[in-house]
Design a binder for these strands. Sequence first.
DNA 1: CATCTAATATTGTCATACAAACTGGAGGCC
DNA 2: GGCCTCCAGTTTGTATGACAATATTAGATG
Lengths: 236, 236
Amino acid sequence: MEYEDLRIVDTPSLVRDHAISKLRNAISSGLYPPGARLVERELCEALGVSRTSVREALRQLQSENLVEVGRRRSINVAVITAQDAADIYMIREMLETQAIRRFVALSDDAERKALAAVHKRLVKALSKNDMAQLSAIASEFYERVLIGAKSRVIYEVARPLLARVNYLRIRSMAEPGRLDGGLKEWDAMMEAVQAGDADRAAEAMAVHLRNARAAIVARLEADEKTAIPAKRKAAS
Amino acid sequence: MEYEDLRIVDTPSLVRDHAISKLRNAISSGLYPPGARLVERELCEALGVSRTSVREALRQLQSENLVEVGRRRSINVAVITAQDAADIYMIREMLETQAIRRFVALSDDAERKALAAVHKRLVKALSKNDMAQLSAIASEFYERVLIGAKSRVIYEVARPLLARVNYLRIRSMAEPGRLDGGLKEWDAMMEAVQAGDADRAAEAMAVHLRNARAAIVARLEADEKTAIPAKRKAAS
DNA sequence: CATCTAATATTGTCATACAAACTGGAGGCC
DNA sequence: GGCCTCCAGTTTGTATGACAATATTAGATG
C-alpha cells in the first residue's frame, strides 16, 4: 500500500511524512474509528515524534478530510454519513471512469502488466475471503489505474477520496453477495483493459463503483438508523 | 471574497487561518506568481506570525495544491500547465453541473435571491470591464452554487479546484471576445436557475465552463510556447 | 444527589535551538 | 582569466519549552 520512493535523488524521508502515513493507516484500518478523538500528546507518544510534526501531519489530514475539527477545537476522525458516501462514490465514478479510459489509452506495457498482477492477487485474496487483504489490494488497483491515467490533477483529486472510503471498504465487501458480484466486476474491468476497449472498461468501472456504492450506502444507512453514538474513543 | 464567520458560538479566529487566507489571496491575486519561491522567514515577517503558524499554513496550502515542493524542499507557488488546467476544468464541469442541478432542486429562496444578486453585480462589473472585480464576483457565484447544492463532499472537492484556477481567471476573461460571450453564459445559467430548470442550468454551466476552459488552455499553451522561465521571484 | 469550584488537560501560538542540506563567494590554483 | 575548493550564511526539518485561553474532570459542598 505504501511504496517508498526509490528515486536516486532526493528523499531523506521526513518524519512528518512517516507520521502522516502511520496516521492514515491507523484510520483506514479502523484502529482509530470514525469520531475518535485524536489527542496530540498521545499521538506524539504513539508515533515517537514531537508535537511540531504531529501538528503538521494533522493539518494535512485535515485538508484531506480524513479528520475534522470538533466544536471545541478537538481533532476527530472524520465521520462519513451515508450521504457523504453516496456523494464520494458518485464523484469517484466520474473521475475513475475517466481515469480508466486514459489508462487504456496512455498506459505502457509495464503498467498494464502490473495492473494485471494486482488483479491476480485480488482474485486470490477473494477466494480466501481475506477482507483486510482484499481491501488493501483493491486500493492498490484503484491507485494504479489513477497513476496510469497520467493526469496529475485527476490523481490529486481522486486519491484523497479513495483514502476517505478506505475504512469503509472492508465492511462493504462483507455485505452478503458483494464478494461474488465483485469478482465478476473486477474481471470485466481487467478484461476490457487488456482488450484495449476504453468504453467497456469505463462501463465496467462504473458498474463496479455503483454496486460498491449501493452496498456501502445501505450499510451506513442501517448503521445510522440503529445507533446515534454520543462519543467514541480511540482504540488503545 | 472572505467572509468572517458570524456564528455566535465558537470562533476565536486562529492566527493560522488568517495566515492561510492571506496567502491564498496573495496567490490568487498574482502577488506571488506561479513558480515564486515562498521563504518561511519572509512569510513570517510579511504576515507577522511565527514560523510555527506559517508552516502549518503552508502544509494546508500544500494539500490544496496551491503550492508545491521544489526539488530541494523549497516551497513554490504551484505552476499550472495547460494540461492541468484542461483537467481541472473537465472535473469542474463534472462537479459543478451536478452542483447546479442540486442547487435548483435544493436551494431555498434566500439562496436563490443571493445568487441573483451576485449575478447582478457580475453584470455590472462586466459592463465596466473591471477584470479583478469580475473575477472575484465570479468566484463568489461559483461558490454560492456549491454551497446551495448542500453537499459537503461536492463542496470540499470542488472548492480547492476553484482556488487553483482563481489566478487564471483574470487572464482568461481578458481573452478577446470572452467577455461578451461570458455575459450570455451567465445570463443563461441564471435564467435557468430561476426557472427551476435543472437540465438547462446544468447545460448552461457546462457550456460556460467549456468555453472558459478553451480560453484558458489556449492562453496557457501560448504562454508555454513562448517562455520557459527558469526562475521567478515573488513580488515584493 | 445536584452544583459550583478548583485542579488538570488540551490546544494554539511563540521563541529558540540545532543538524543537515544547499547557496554563494572568496580565494587559491592552473 | 577561467575554474575549483572550501567556508560562511541560508533555509528547511525537527525538537523543546513556555504560556495563555479554554475545556474537562474531580472534588468539595450544600
